[in-house]
């Protein structure tokens, strides 16, 4: 027996796979974002509204990851966007390998914007890179403004935070300014967009950011 010193993080091989996927998507001209949040924060609702607003400008595809069921993929397909449902069979996050399989199965011909709707939880998806160029997380008003304190890693690994269900603000003790301050303390570069997909409030700022990021990425 010989001893081999490794000193490798467990996620090192996944990070490498993610980097390879990111490069391949760049060559194909597909801007890929990873959408993360807890269950029930409104990922599918935000996506449906975003797709209807942007589908005249981009060909959009959505990779829906869930432990079971295909209700989300069907809701997205009803809008005319390409979609595939990935079942993780109990796994609590998507890694780069699973993401690649899903994207290949769905097909990316003519797609300019691909979105991964990751498994609904604020812990595990933050630890595994997927190959996305941007990480976006959602936090809904009913979840509470203390979530940055409890799940710091998710806020640290995201490029943008969309605060959803702003129309429900009058009914909850959610301090928007305090929440922003907590988030900025963890990640000073994060962009924050308070929105309501239901009333349309704030949607333009979020969609403008997305368009700008796609433009910057294409020019890069």
């Amino acid at each position: 027996m010989k001893v081999i010193e490794l000193h490798k993080t467990v996620t090192a091989s996944n990070d490498r796979d993610a980097e390879v996927l990111r490069k391949e998507l760049k060559e194909k001209g597909v801007f890929f974002i990873n959408l993360m949040s807890s269950a029930g924060s409104g990922k599918t609702t935000l996506l449906k509204k975003t797709i209807s607003d942007l589908q005249h400008e981009y060909n959009i595809a959505v990779l829906e990851a869930d432990i079971e069921a295909d209700v989300d993929a069907r809701a997205i397909e009803a809008l005319g966007a390409r979609s595939i449902q990935v079942h993780t069979d109990g796994m609590c996050h998507m890694d780069a390998g699973m993401t690649r399989q899903g994207l290949e199965e769905m097909g990316l011909e003519n797609i300019d914007l691909a979105i991964l709707e990751n498994i609904g939880n604020l812990i595990c998806p933050a630890e595994f890179a997927t190959g996305a160029s941007k990480n976006v997380m959602l936090l809904s008003v009913p979840e509470g403004d203390d979530k940055p304190l409890k799940y710091p890693l998710m806020f640290q690994t995201s490029d943008a935070l969309v605060i959803t269900k702003m129309d429900a603000l009058p009914y909850f003790d959610f301090d928007l300014e305090k929440c922003k301050e907590r988030v900025k303390y963890l990640n000073k570069d994060i962009q924050i967009f308070p929105v309501s997909a239901k009333t349309g409030e704030g949607m333009e700022a979020w969609e403008d950011w997305l368009k700008e990021e796609i433009k910057k990425w294409k020019e890069d």
Binding site: M1, K2, V3, I4, E5, L6, H7, K8, T9
Partner: peptide
């Protein structure tokens, strides 16, 4: 917050 593989013992 680490989760690292430090070392292994192996046979060639």
């Amino acid at each position: 917050n680490e989760c690292n593989i430090k070392q292994i013992e192996a046979e060639e």
